[in-house]
């Protein structure tokens, strides 16, 4: 019977539901959400690939490719801490669900080109949805 005061207080007051997705609360600053790579600054050093506990990042320095499987990523931000150029970062929004799996595949300029042809540098974003 002790619960009575509690339930009555509940029905008198406002419900405590956050009406997600119709109303969204501003995200917390430090939330580890989606992993993004600013491929312009990436030097393909493989630090992230080596440090990742889930082994979800594959870096190909020759081709200048940076692949990440967002469905194997555990959002621990170890790669962000390990990145020497701070090109990796985490947004404070979670990654949205998808009806099929894919790999985030970013194409940058391989390291050896240095700063020679900066004008030609255009990151192409490609997606390869699996079945």
């Amino acid at each position: 019977m002790y619960m009575l005061s509690n339930v009555l207080r509940n029905i008198m007051g406002k419900y405590s539901t956050r009406l997600y997705p119709f109303e969204t609360r501003p995200a917390y600053e430090g939330f580890r959400g989606k992993l993004v790579n600013n491929i312009h600054d990436c030097i393909f050093c493989k630090s992230c690939q080596i440090k990742c506990p889930s082994q979800c990042i594959t870096v190909d320095p020759k081709e200048g490719k940076w692949d990440c499987d967002p469905f194997a990523c555990v959002y621990c931000s170890v790669c962000v801490d390990a990145c020497p150029t701070h090109c990796l970062s985490m947004e404070n929004q979670h990654r949205k669900p998808a009806p099929s799996k894919f790999v985030v595949s970013l194409q940058g300029t391989p390291r050896k080109s240095k700063k020679a042809d900066k004008s030609a540098e255009k990151p192409a974003e490609a997606a390869a949805p699996e079945a």
Binding site: M3, N6, S16, Y28, G30, F31, R32, Y75, C76, S77
Partner: peptide, 28 residues
Amino acid sequence: SLFMQFWKIRERVMDINEATAGNRVVIS
């Protein structure tokens, strides 16, 4: 209803975790 109450107030701790450590559950 008691279950709902406990889980309602628990969300405060989850919010603390999310805001300070970056994730609600596995805070790393």
